[in-house]
Amino acid sequence: MGRIISALNDRKVFDTLNRSSASEGGYITNVSDEYNTVIATVNATAVIENGSYYVGGQPIRAGERLALRLPDFYGDALITAVKVKEG
């Protein structure tokens, strides 16, 4: 699936809902003291098939989830952006 060329490791940010009343309620942004979010930029060579890009048989599209395995880590990742450099 390619190589990580940069990674930004930060506390996980998540929203909770305040339902106290219609006037005071709304989403509250929280910062987790337990979990982190890692935003990694990965460089890989893709093949194009029917207008889609594939790396290792996996379609590479923003919004797709994929199982990511590193030498010492295995987890679920969400593709958030795709940039294509032709050639």
């Binding site: 809902l17 339902r19 106290s20 009343s21 219609a22 309620g25 709304g26 989403y27």
Partner: peptide, 13 residues
Amino acid sequence: EYAVDGSIMHLER
């Protein structure tokens, strides 16, 4: 969304 008193909340994301 709905508040605890049942009133409707329209929340921008």
